[in-house]
Design a protein around this nucleic acid. Structure first.
Lengths: 230, 230
DNA sequence: GCATCCTTTATGTATAGACATAATGATCTA
DNA sequence: TAGATCATTATGTCTATACATAAAGGATGC
């Protein structure tokens, strides 16, 4: 028996990584082209192509037409960051999820959102997410009414804007930034943290088809951790 | 003329996203299979496959053999997070990069690293990265000597461990976690921040071929931001 | 020396066809 | 009825081939 397994793109991928680790191919140096490597490894060019393409997406290789493929010299590693729904995030820890709407009004877009939207009204929301009845995250949110007209008639008293938006305006473009900040007294109170505690702040702006949808500022207690496994 | 462009995988991708936004396909619902969609859009199955595969990797679709493809019901969006070298990060802002080694010793692996390595010695490093002569990041690092024997004879007085490791042990597996913490007096001093200032802390553990390589704890002033664009 | 054009090359993508594989759902059996 | 078995189905992958396209590098002309 001992059926010899075909060399698949995963094998090619591993072989490439191996050769980099063993320093057969070193950072900055051009490696063989797809056709030659395919011949050497005994597979089709498409197979090598897929392996190389994925490694390039991850920042391991740098590819340029005609110039060839080389091991990234100043590697910018790329890791996938998972952005789950708050509810799912909480429930993944076997905790009971709960939601409270704190504030809800409709007003003109504030000045600091002008960077994202030109004009118009917004729904301004403030809410609290809880895990096992303990504060988990404070969410400050602005929803563009020109972008999401349906938000005007929604009260958000039971469903969090997070979840409502996912159903109403799914799969938008997202820009996320993270920072560490000192909690304001209000935030510290809501999160049941001491005054001036450090908070982990996530800011998320989203668009759909180029139209601005929403901006959210999420405050976590300082112990919040997020993991990206490469 | 008006040569009709072929429908490529990007077109298919866009068309799928469009149909989701227009709610032709809604979260949780099964969409047509690759063969049918290819026929409808006038392209090969492989083309549809690539589009769907990428969308699944990004968390937009959920695919299962035989069960088919559906729009993700509880979407876990995935964004790419770029992890550049500190030097590159600083120089990208047109600032002058500088590096200072603060501490350097060889000792037995501390207890809190037992989670990553079983035993053996480590190189313990503490260093400061500067942008335009202003403190930019404090790096605390432990390098496993069993994993990286060459680290024993390196002084790290000129080259940061960050850069040295990239050349010495390229393309390892990485696990990253982020958190917001209160600066210790020492860290605050090094970063020229007030006492108990919030700091953005990145912790990175890396392996190569299953062997533990290094653990790093990076402290940024609270204003540090990192962006992930979807 | 310098700009322009052209050739060559490596990657980028599309295609049809084939087979592999996971998982469903129906069918059979104790 | 519960459990084992099996055909079916949709995705997963590989192949060979073809053509598109970016870009390096040489050739050409001034």
């Amino acid at each position: 028996m001992t059926a010899v397994d075909r060399t698949g793109y995963r094998d090619v991928r591993e072989e490439i990584l191996r050769r980099i680790r063993v320093k057969i191919w070193t950072p900055g140096v051009v490696m063989p082209n797809e056709t030659d490597l395919a011949a050497e490894l005994g597979c089709a060019r498409a197979t090598v192509n897929r392996a190389m393409r994925e490694l390039a997406e991850e920042g391991v290789l740098e590819r340029k037409r005609k110039a060839g493929t080389r091991v990234a010299a100043a590697p910018v590693r790329r890791a996938q960051l998972k952005i789950p729904l708050v509810r799912a995030e909480v429930e993944a820890t076997r905790a009971k999820y709960a939601y409270q709407r704190l504030d809800h009004q409709i007003l003109a877009a504030p000045a600091d959102l002008k960077r994202y939207m030109n004009a118009g009204e917004v729904v301004r929301l403030s809410c609290l997410h809880l895990a096992d009845d303990r504060p988990y995250q404070v969410e400050d949110r602005w929803i563009s009414l020109p972008g999401v007209p349906a938000a005007r008639s929604e009260t958000f008293s039971d469903v969090s804007p997070n979840e409502w938006l996912v159903k109403e305006v799914p799969f938008t473009d997202v820009e996320v930034t993270f920072s560490a900040q000192t909690a304001t007294d209000e935030i510290a109170g809501l999160l049941a943290q001491p005054k001036a505690a450090p908070v982990f702040v996530t800011e998320r702006a989203t668009w759909a088809e180029g139209a601005f949808i929403t901006f959210a500022r999420l405050h976590h207690p300082q112990t919040y951790r997020m993991t990206a496994r490469y």
